[in-house]
């Protein structure tokens, strides 16, 4: 299962979302997801300035034998990406919730955050099956 910090929200596609003080949101993949993928060797990041819809592909995380799309949990404009992942993709494995963040969005509609699971729901969802 891995760590599931209570203060974050979670998409069914295993992205976590943190709302920052300035109203922007930061997105990464969960500990559960990084563990399932194994050693991450490459991250394909979105471009700053891209406008993404909720559920739209934002990038790709690759391990040696798997590749997984990252989806935008809510709609918004990409305002920053974690460039450090280009050289150190293993930061997602080592530190999925802080150093391994992937991109930041300026939300178009903060109400969309209500549609995303809380930590306990995500935990239950992960436990319920082979996700």
């Amino acid at each position: 299962m891995g760590m599931i910090p209570a203060e974050l929200k979670y998409a069914k596609t295993h992205e976590w979302v943190r709302t920052e003080d300035d109203g922007t949101v930061t997105v990464g993949i969960t500990d559960h997801a990084q563990h399932a993928l194994g050693d991450i060797v490459y991250v394909d990041l979105p471009e700053v300035g891209d406008t993404l819809k909720a559920g739209q592909e934002a990038g790709v995380v690759e391990s040696v034998k798997a590749a997984s799309d990252i989806y935008a949990p809510i709609s918004g404009e990409v305002i920053a990406v974690n460039d450090e992942l280009a050289d150190n993709p293993e930061m997602i494995n080592n530190d999925p919730y802080t150093g391994g963040w992937i991109f930041k969005l300026k939300p178009l509609d903060v109400n969309e955050l209500d549609d995303i699971q809380d930590s306990d729901v995500y935990k239950e969802w992960c436990e319920s099956g082979d996700h």
Partner: peptide
């Protein structure tokens, strides 16, 4: 770099 290939990436 096998994650580019069809047996892993399938439709992508």
């Amino acid at each position: 770099l096998q994650a580019r290939e069809q047996h892993i990436r399938r439709g992508k």
